[in-house]
Design a protein around this nucleic acid. Structure first.
Length: 307
DNA sequence: AAGGACTTAGAGATTACGTCA
DNA sequence: ACTGACGTAATCTCTAAGTCC
């Protein structure tokens, strides 16, 4: 997402610097706002952040540098332990474990609850086992002709998926199968969960982007107001100068670091008449009205002369 | 090498369901 | 008990990339 603002000659193209070409996705908040000012002789195009705030990046992504104490591969849940504890109640035993990838969510009249809190009837399991045995189509391919029934993933399942998502926000088939088996979910469910998770991440990042852009917009509006005011002052200065014909020529000089425009009279002219100098509040020596320091006008002019 | 048919994975939009105030 | 808002699982459609012929 990029926002280009060019203050100055609109005919000049605005260039962005791609700071990190490998991160040029929408989640890359390193957009720039450029301000073009200055005279043709010293055209400078600079890309600067409007705010000193660093760009916002929601820590929702798997490449987030946040330390992760326990990678999912090491996450062990007690109900996933090998042995009899990992058997379904109601006589459904480990051979049905393979059926986890075939399970149908289409039952609210569950006769038991799986360890992960997903309700599935034994009838469903029996059906899936039969499907598996006969090689017929599984519920992963078609929903047994029934309307879909939404399941709620348990907190443990969600947490596990979340941890996995932090590691990689996309899955290859092997990872998908592994996760599905580990969580007693169908591979399709894992796949859908990752798709929705990516969508949520993107949505939240977009919201953050919007907030950040809003702040940038406000900052720029304020900057624009300030520049307009400055311009008005300069115009007033110029008109009053034409009124006092004996006044020396006013030169506009731009601070090379912050690019604000300051007015000044020539060093010889600054010493002309006390009347005009005081009238214009341009008594010598004049310093830049820039916030970052008191760069003396003569220093700047000397610097500009050498460069 | 070029190009069409097919497959696959992911994004985006939408629907449908469960939960809660 | 009813209802609307909200979160999210699930579905549908489209597109891009890869593969095969």
């Amino acid at each position: 997402m990029e926002l280009a603002l060019s203050l100055g000659d609109p005919s000049k193209p605005f260039k962005f610097i791609d700071k990190n070409p490998t991160m040029s996705t929408s989640r890359d908040l390193g957009f720039c706002i450029g301000l073009r000012t200055g005279s043709p002789a010293q055209e400078v195009t600079q890309e600067r952040r409007v705010s000193s705030d660093p760009p916002l990046q929601l820590d929702l992504l798997p490449f987030s540098p946040v330390p992760r104490p326990t990678p999912p591969s090491q996450l062990r849940f007690p109900w996933l332990a090998d042995g009899p504890g990992n058997r379904f109640p109601g006589g459904v035993t480990e051979e049905v474990d393979e059926g986890a990838s075939l399970s149908s969510p289409n039952s609210t009249t569950s006769s038991f609850q799986m360890d992960f809190g997903i309700g599935r009837s034994k009838r469903d399991f029996d059906l899936e086992v039969e499907n598996e045995r006969t090689g017929s189509k599984t519920s992963d391919d078609e929903d047994n002709g029934l309307t879909r029934k939404k399941l709620r993933l348990s907190k443990e399942q969600s947490a596990f998926l979340e941890e996995s998502f932090k590691e990689h926000n996309t899955l290859n088939p092997k990872q998908k199968l592994g996760l599905a088996k580990q969580l007693n979910l169908r591979p399709r469910q894992v796949e859908v969960w990752f798709q929705n998770r990516r969508a949520r991440t993107k949505l939240k990042q977009t919201e953050v982007d919007c907030e950040y852009l809003k702040r940038c917009c406000e900052t720029l509006t304020e900057e624009n107001r300030r520049l307009q005011k400055e311009l008005q002052e300069l115009r007033a200065l110029k008109s009053s100068q034409s009124f006092y014909m004996q006044l020396p020529a006013t030169t506009l000089t731009m601070c090379p670091s912050c690019e604000r425009v300051a007015t000044s009279t020539s060093s010889s002219a600054a010493t002309t008449t006390a009347t005009t100098s005081s009238a214009l509040s341009l008594s010598k020596p004049r310093s830049y009205p820039f916030p970052h320091g008191s760069i003396h006008m003569s220093q700047v002019q000397a610097h500009q002369a050498t460069s």
